[in-house]
């Protein structure tokens, strides 16, 4: 293979539906970067491709499922988590990843997020947080920082934004991390860990939306945003999640890292253990023993 041919070959191409390219994302958008991380994580995670399923909701990030050459499901707005729950419980051999945005997961899907974390359903949720409903033109989300401008908060947001790592951790998630689109190596590693973690894993990825959120809030372009992530991020593994909230558009410190990594029986294990204890031999074990 010549050098030229090598350059033309994309190292993650085998994980992509190349017949669907070009994708819908804007120039400078962070979603593509994270998909690149995810594809590399898929290569590294050791899970056979045919046993890996991905579910997305409706948003810019919701389009991820459509570009990955996996069993991929693009469902309704806010509901990828319950769909993923059904997939996983029906076939415990699958590794199931939900890949969606902050509006989809935390606003309309918030009830599903907290209950899946509580149940410790063995799925991985990768939530891109760009602080806005980008696909519909930039409306305010429950993650939008104080004072940030969105079309439905034209004078600036005044609601307290969600601290999602803290929320899911307090509901019982066994793996919780936050990285930014700048931290591609750490993010890739976190994705590998999360997919291999038994139980409910959650990764918040802070990601630039230059077309809408950055422009409307006069925060510069995508490069400026990544520089901001680079210069202000502080890695604090095991941080107290109550202290990792992102309340201001430009926080002094962006706390990133692996905040939670604990063990707790997942839904299927809890169900099998409990019901076999109660029902003895009459119980039909679900999944591989």
């Amino acid at each position: 293979m010549s050098v030229e041919e090598k350059v033309k070959e994309n190292p993650v191409e085998e994980f992509l539906r190349t017949d669907r390219l070009p994708h819908v994302w804007c120039q400078g958008c962070g979603i593509g970067t994270t998909v690149n991380c995810f594809a590399r994580a898929v290569r590294k995670c050791g899970i056979p491709l045919e046993k890996l399923a991905i579910v997305s909701g409706i948003c810019c990030t919701g389009r991820v499922a459509g570009y990955l050459k996996l069993d991929s499901f693009h469902v309704t707005h806010g509901r990828p988590i319950p769909f993923a729950t059904g997939l996983k419980l029906a076939n415990p051999e699958l590794t199931v990843v939900v890949y969606s945005g902050d509006g989809d997961i935390a606003a309309i899907g918030g009830n599903h997020l907290i209950n899946a974390a509580r149940r410790n359903v063995d799925i991985t949720v990768i939530m891109l947080n760009n602080f806005t409903y980008a696909m519909t033109g930039g409306q305010v989300t429950p993650t939008a920082p104080y004072e940030s401008i969105n079309t439905t908060a034209p004078y600036g947001a005044y609601e307290k934004p969600f601290n999602l790592p803290h929320l899911v951790a307090s509901c019982g998630a066994v793996y919780v991390a936050r990285w930014t689109a700048y931290h591609v190596v750490q993010l890739t590693k976190a994705m590998v860990e999360a997919m291999n973690k038994k139980g409910f894993s959650f990764i918040e990825v802070i990601s630039p939306c230059p077309t809408i959120f950055l422009r409307r809030n006069r925060l510069g372009d995508a490069i400026a945003e990544l520089k901001f992530y680079k210069e202000h991020s502080v890695i604090k593994h095991g941080a107290d999640t109550s202290e990792v909230g992102w309340d201001e558009t430009r926080p002094d410190e962006i706390i990133v890292g692996k905040f939670v990594d604990v063990e707790r029986p997942d839904f299927i294990e809890a169900m099998n253990t409990h019901l076999s204890k109660r029902l003895g031999d009459k119980y039909v074990w679900w999944g591989k023993k």
């Binding site: 499901f73 319950p82 076939n91």
Partner: peptide, 15 residues
């Protein structure tokens, strides 16, 4: 809402 989509995940996994 969750019930009505959870069951569809189960169907696409084969049940």
């Amino acid at each position: 809402i969750a019930s009505s989509i959870c069951l569809q995940g189960a169907v696409w996994a084969g049940l």
